[in-house]
Design a protein around this nucleic acid. Structure first.
Length: 426
RNA sequence: GGAGAAGUCGCGUAGCUGGUCGAGCGCGCACGAUUGGAAAUCGUGUAACCGUCAAAAGCGGUUCGAGAGUUCGAAUCUCUCCUUCUCCGCCA
């Protein structure tokens, strides 16, 4: 959520910066300003009525003590109360509408981002070179099937398309990746958090997925009561709400943490034939990094998260690139995002394995997450998140990039102690 | 799942026969006095949000788990929900 005061003072700038994200916000901003004016007028009017009613009501005990008849005051007060209540109803309507417009506005992209979509993404760094093969390489689906790492067929039998089963060495390789990530974050001093995998609606609002993108997550309704949960689409949705409606202490920041969770996404209608196998499933594993920081710390925190993600990928020995996303390719909640993309030889181009973002105070405003500074002032904090990492693109890249002519797959050095072998073969 | 109890200002609590209670006390914290310095002691202060204002102060409004109701007036009464605790049952 943006700062209403900022919108009031810089409406043209807000519209212009959101245009870089591909959002025409002129109408939204006009509507917000109109509703805000209406809201404040109503509040002023209603508060005057309430003040008068309060004043009258305070006279009653005195009247009683003196044995005077207060019935005239009762009548006046009753009339004022009725009017105030009527206004409050109208006000509630206005505020609901205003909030809904406010929640609908995306975050302002940082000024240094190029406007527009994907086509304006900028590769800012490359690491090592793509693997060159002196034999005909197989794709990861065939490799995983041949080596018995992934059981796609039976995964579909159990849960339908978009699901798979890790088996044997496949499961161990997957778990090894997760362990490698987790151990790295722990040694970097990040707190390990295992959150619920089912969340309430409010978490999605704070993170920025709701109300707009509610269709992309799985909704769980319980037939015996009216509680509704949502399967988390990313641990970010849980972590972003950790300190919702709290005021933190300045010296406690930054808070650095990470989670491992499966992530559940409907991915309705997004299947593409080049995204075979586990590249875009309904359930995948991800380790997510998260930071809560003071506003002035968030740029450094962002760099730290990008570096951590890069180190994880380079630690596995992969060629990859770091991409600075154009404004329009950043998600709605984010002011800036860098993606780390690896090469999956059987697919054209690069696939995202990590996405690091700075939400600045956008999520903090949605979730009322604040900090009390040393001088007593209360401010919104900044939130940042980054995958560190998602395995569902790493594992395909790993088996493809590390495949040998005989169909075996070499296990990256850092994973060997977890997998218990150097080479996976049939 | 069944039966009880409770949710108050950072923490612990008082208030709950409706008005002067946004709310007392203790602890914690901040500042000041005292001290060579500290401890101890004493004094003062110590919620958030919203509106008004250029801003601060001030003033006004709202908030005692959440929502609704009764009433001129609710922390106090009624209802619904949420959460926590205790006991019983069931079960990884």
């Amino acid at each position: 959520m943006l700062d209403i005061n900022y919108i009031k003072e810089n409406p043209a700038e807000v519209v212009e910066r959101l245009a870089a994200k591909g959002k025409d916000a002129a109408e939204d901003v006009a509507k917000i300003l109109e509703l805000d004016t209406k809201r404040r007028a109503l509040i002023t009017e209603t508060e005057a009525i309430k003040a008068e009613q309060n004043k009258l009501t305070k006279l009653i005990p005195q009247y009683k003590k003196e044995g005077k008849d207060p019935s005239e005051i009762f009548a006046q007060s009753r009339a004022l109360g009725a009017k105030a209540k009527e206004n409050d109803e109208i006000l509630k309507g206005v505020e609901t509408e205003l909030t809904s417009w406010m929640l609908g506005l995306p975050n302002l992209p940082d000024r240094d981002l190029l406007p527009g979509g994907k086509e304006n993404n900028e590769s800012i760094r490359f690491f090592s070179e793509p693997r060159k093969f002196d034999f005909e390489p197989k794709n990861h689906v065939d490799l995983c099937n041949a080596l018995g790492l992934i059981d796609y067929e039976r995964g579909t039998k159990l849960a339908g398309s978009g699901f798979w089963i890790y088996r044997g060495m496949g499961a161990r390789l997957e778990w090894a990746l997760l362990n490698y990530f987790i151990d790295t974050h722990i040694s970097d001093g990040y707190e390990f958090i295992l959150p619920p995998h089912m969340l309430e609606y409010e978490c999605g609002v704070t993170a920025g997925q709701f109300p707009k993108f509610a269709d992309e997550v799985y909704k769980i309704e319980n037939p015996t009561d009216d509680r509704i949960h949502y399967m988390l689409p990313t641990a970010e949705a849980a972590l972003a709400s950790l300190y919702r409606k709290e005021i933190l202490t300045e010296t406690d920041l930054p808070k650095k943490m990470f989670s491992y969770t499966p992530c559940f996404r409907r991915e309705a209608g997004s299947y593409r034939s080049d995204e075979r196998g586990m590249v875009r499933g309904h359930q995948f594993n991800k380790v997510e990094m998260f930071q809560f920081t003071l506003p002035e710390q968030s740029d450094a925190a962002f760099d730290e998260l990008v570096t951590k993600a890069e180190n994880l990928v380079s630690g596995l020995g992969f060629h990859f690139r770091t991409v600075k996303l154009a404004a329009g390719d950043c998600s709605a909640s984010m002011a800036r995002t860098y993606d780390i993309e690896i090469n999956i030889p059987s697919m054209d181009g690069y696939k995202e394995v990590s996405s690091v973002s700075n939400a600045r105070d956008y999520q903090a405003r949605r979730g009322m997450m604040r900090v009390r500074r040393a001088n007593g002032k209360i401010e919104y904090i900044h939130t940042l998140n980054g995958s560190g990492l998602a395995t569902s693109r790493i594992l395909p890249a790993l088996v493809e990039q590390n495949q040998n002519a005989d169909g075996s797959v070499t296990v990256p050095e850092v994973l060997r102690k977890y997998v218990g072998t150097d080479v996976i073969k049939k």
